[in-house]
């Protein structure tokens, strides 16, 4: 990440361990939040840094201020009602902060 992107980054709202809910939104464009995880609640696994927003980059804009990016961990048994496996199984997804609300 460039120094400019760091300087123009949105402050991180969440810390590892925080419970977050992924926004449910059906919006057009270059969205990196997979459909299957929208509306689900998980826990911040780590902050990955801040990156220019891909939804803006895709249209040749700067994507600044950079958005904090997190790895969010979800329980598979909660994401898929018919999940076959251990209750401890997880899925980790990289999600930008503007797609997350406190839960």
């Amino acid at each position: 990440m460039s120094a400019a992107a760091t300087a123009a980054a949105v402050a991180a709202r969440f810390r590892p361990g925080d419970r977050v809910k992924v926004r449910w939104a059906d919006v057009p464009g270059h969205i990196r939040t997979p459909w299957y995880i929208r509306g689900h609640t998980g826990v911040i696994e780590r902050l990955c840094g801040a990156y220019p927003n891909p939804e803006e980059l895709a249209y040749t804009r700067s994507g600044l201020p950079a958005q904090p990016l997190y790895r969010v961990r979800f329980a598979q048994s909660q994401v898929w009602p018919d999940y076959v496996g251990s209750r401890a199984d997880t899925i980790d997804v990289e999600i930008y902060q503007h797609w997350l609300d406190p839960a």
């Binding site: 990955c48 251990s86 980790d92 930008y96």
Partner: peptide, 13 residues
Amino acid sequence: RVTVRVHDSTANM
């Protein structure tokens, strides 16, 4: 007994 962790590589990692 083994926990399965799936990692969805959706962004910059």
